[in-house]
Design a protein around this nucleic acid. Structure first.
Lengths: 126, 126
DNA sequence: GTCGGCCTACTCGGATATCAGCTGTCCGAGTTGCCCTGG
DNA sequence: CCAGGGCAACTCGGACAGCTGATATCCGAGTAGGCCGAC
């Protein structure tokens, strides 16, 4: 089990944008070069963030990506959830018993990590 | 990102063994039927636990799996690590910068979950 | 009766098949700013 | 000088390929207990 590289790219990209100034646009080319990814792939990842309203994208000449209006409130968890999806880490696929004690322990532990990620905002690192 | 089903099987199997009495053996057939898995696949999973010394396996007629001597100390984390491996959830593959602030946040959050899983022992659920 | 060999019920390990999801590429389409040309 | 068209630089979206890891399955090998027959 691992976080996907896409999550890594998304986190770093948002941090790049934040450090670059919240208003300025950056082309996907430039962002991709800094992370050694192909621009097309990075564009796919960033589109997920666009759909969540975290960042803007401007087409056309001199287009690019820039941060959304509430970027200072974006937490690590927001970004991760946008990329990885909203499914829980653990699913007890054995019996559909909602009282499964193993599931309870796992979900409690997951919540612990989630809380930490919810409280950490990208803006704290700028 | 998700925990593999193998982890789910491993956790439930150990709980089965614990509830069945720490000394008694259970065949992989029986364990597999309760979880709707193929016996051969479950056997592969359980072998990982055998190698970590958590459970014993007895070949031959009336063979099967039984708990190891220190089974009461086995934590959720031990089992998960035996199945999923010891790699960290997050790897900053961008620059090999050990000071990457994103990595630090992620690892801190991961530690939070890890601690919770370390402190939860299977024996608490029996 | 007892000793040894076979048989059966198990686990172990490697090789292999299958499948889903991640990663990445390619191409066509849409959009926007800029330049260039014709009046 | 100005308006309009075309071009170039971008992003967007879908289709598709490759690869890796999870999820199995199969088969041969090893092991232990029990049975059975020969002596």
């Amino acid at each position: 089990m691992k976080y996907s590289r896409a999550t890594d790219y998304a986190l770093h990209t948002i941090l790049f944008l934040a450090r670059n100034g919240s208003e300025k646009k950056l082309g996907v080319q430039e962002l991709a070069e800094k992370q050694n990814v192909s621009p097309t792939y990075l564009s796919k990842i960033l589109n997920k963030l666009v759909k969540e309203g975290m960042i803007y994208s401007s087409p056309g000449v001199n287009g690019g990506y820039s941060l959304g209006p509430h970027w200072e409130e974006i937490s690590f968890f927001d970004i991760i959830q946008a990329i990885e999806g909203k499914t829980s880490l653990f699913d007890c696929c054995l019996n559909s018993n909602p009282e499964c004690s193993i599931k309870k322990v796992m979900l409690a532990a997951e919540k612990n990590m989630e809380e930490e990620l919810r409280n950490k905002k990208i803006s704290e690192l700028v």
